[in-house]
Simulated scan of single mutants.
Amino acid sequence: MPDAVAVKRHYGRWLSVAILAAIALGAIKSLAENPQLEWDVVAQYLFDGLILEGLAQTVILALISMLAATAIGLIFGFFRLSSNPVLRTVGSLYIWVFRSVPALIQILFWGNLALFAPRLGLGIPGTGWNLVSAPTNDVLSPFAASIVALALANGAYLAEIIRSGLLSVDEGQHLASSALGLTWWQAQRKVILPQALRVMVPPAGNQFITLLKETSLVSVIAGGDILSKAENISGYNLRTIELLIVAAVWYLLVTSAATLAQTFIERRSSRGHTQQRRKAPSPESTMNEKEVTL
């Protein structure tokens, strides 16, 4: 008869869980019973029309900025890997500048561009001849300025993410693509980028979640996000904390949804890579097949 296996008791874990649960319950109880907080105001404005409008603007702002930042990141990520020293320098300068300057300053810069550039135009420099010209505030509304600022700021981070993903692909894949007669673009699109995506998806997903939270910064130029709407409402009902709680709840829900989507995409990409590895013949089996053929 086999000896019974003794189950190790993790009393320390249970004790730490009990302590953390007690702290959490105490904090919740303190907030719920705080006479200075009017929870009925939180419930009233949680699904208010202005708040939901700000929520939609926040999601749209994040999605458009992420798409633009990805395009920018692809361009400057390839610049950083280029054999052309001019392109490498341009890519390095862009990443250095836009990663060094805080996103809030960039948002304020683009939001107040009209202070030193009242009009934006397209023409021939030095001639005074403009093909197109318009007031800056008409071209760069607060929403458009927010997209430009967030896209440029996050594009610098995505450029490094894309560069690291491209570098993770073995050099043999590049050589094999050349041997098959693929052009540089065909090799990148069909061979290199699909393999690099597996490495780029996790940090790119984290960057999108960071971008979602950074949309709150555009409230300084009235970008129309959920925090801007919450601040506008609190400006006339003077319930600042309650409206901040409303905004925090929605940010928590949106970032949680983005986290779940990121997890799903990561599992799908890793599953495809695993299946590809299983289908790929091993070197030993290939050698055996050659021997049998001979």
Results as ranks from 00 to 15, higher is better:
V148Y: 01
L150N: 07
F116K: 13
T136L: 06
P2K: 02
S282T: 13
K8G: 09
V218Q: 03
G123Q: 05
E38R: 05
T89H: 01
L152Y: 07
V139L: 14
Q275T: 03
G165N: 03
L131M: 10
N137T: 10
S100I: 13
N232A: 15
A103M: 14
R99S: 08
N34S: 14
N34D: 15
K29G: 14
L115I: 14
G121Q: 01
L175T: 13
R9Q: 14
A21W: 02
I60M: 11
Q36H: 02
P194H: 09
L212F: 08
P281H: 04
Y11Q: 10
L227M: 09
Q106W: 11
K213E: 02
G126D: 05
V254E: 06
V169F: 11
S133D: 11
T240M: 05
Y157I: 12
S141Y: 01
D138G: 02
I221T: 07
T255K: 00
L244S: 02
Q207N: 14
I124A: 06
I51S: 00
I51R: 01
V249I: 15
P2I: 01
L104N: 12
M66T: 12
I245E: 04
L182F: 12
L252F: 15
Q36I: 00
R189I: 02
G128I: 07
I147Q: 04
Y236I: 06
A179M: 06
V86H: 01
R88H: 07
P2E: 04
A71E: 09
A187S: 15
S216L: 02
I265L: 13
W110G: 06
L227K: 00
N84E: 01
A222G: 13
E231P: 00
T215K: 14
I233Q: 07
K8H: 07
P118E: 02
A144E: 03
I162S: 00
T240H: 03
Y94K: 10
S256H: 12
L55P: 07
Q57A: 13
I107G: 06
L67C: 13
E214L: 12
S141N: 03
D48W: 04
D225H: 13
F143Q: 06
W185D: 10
L260R: 07
L61V: 12
R119A: 06
E284K: 05
P142A: 08
S92Y: 01
D225I: 13
A247K: 02
L243W: 01
L67R: 07
P85I: 09
S270D: 14
S177K: 12
S82N: 00
L81W: 04
V218P: 04
F78C: 11
S269A: 13
L238A: 06
G77W: 01
R277Y: 09
V7A: 10
N137K: 14
K290Y: 08
G111C: 07
G54W: 14
Q36K: 01
D225K: 14
S146R: 03
A32H: 11
A4T: 14
